[in-house]
C-alpha cells in the first residue's frame, strides 16, 4: 500500500494505492490519526487506486472519522472503486461517510 499526502488550499488529500489489510492498515492509521491530532479541518481520502480493503481498514477509517468529528473536522471519501463501495454498503458505512465522485466535488461540497 502507498499513501501520498498533499496539502491544498482548504483541505488535505490522502491518496491510497494498493491493498488495505491487517498488514498495511497500521501505517494508514498513523497517517490519519496524525491528521486528527493536528486537528486538520477537512481531509479527503482518494480511494481510486485501492484494490482491497478488509475490516481493519474499515475500522481505521471509522476511528479516524470519530476523532475528526470530535473537534468538528470532516473526513470525506472520493473516487471509491465499485468493490470497495460494495464493502462500504455491506458495512453500512455508506451512510456514515461523505462519499463523492471526485476530489473536486469533495473539496467544493
Amino acid at each position: 500500500m502507498k499513501i501520498d499526502t498533499t496539502v491544498h488550499s482548504g483541505y488535505t488529500a490522502i491518496s491510497i494505492a494498493g491493498e488495505i489489510d491487517m498488514y498495511s492498515s497500521p501505517a494508514l492509521r498513523d497517517t490519519l490519526l496524525t491528521m486528527a491530532k493536528k486537528k486538520e479541518a477537512i481531509v479527503i481520502i482518494n480511494l481510486k487506486d485501492v484494490k482491497y480493503i478488509d475490516s481493519s481498514g474499515i475500522a481505521t477509517f471509522v476511528e479516524a472519522l470519530k476523532k475528526m468529528l470530535s473537534y468538528g473536522g470532516k473526513l470525506k471519501m472520493a473516487q471509491v472503486p465499485d468493490r470497495v463501495m460494495e464493502i462500504f454498503n455491506f458495512s453500512k458505512l455508506d451512510k456514515v461517510f461523505d462519499i463523492y465522485g471526485s476530489i473536486e466535488d469533495a473539496a467544493n461540497s
Binding site: S55, S91, K92, V96
Partner: peptide
Amino acid sequence: DEVRPGGLGIHF
C-alpha cells in the same frame, strides 16, 4: 448498524 471500529470480520 452500530458504527464503531472493529467487529466486522465475522460478518464478511
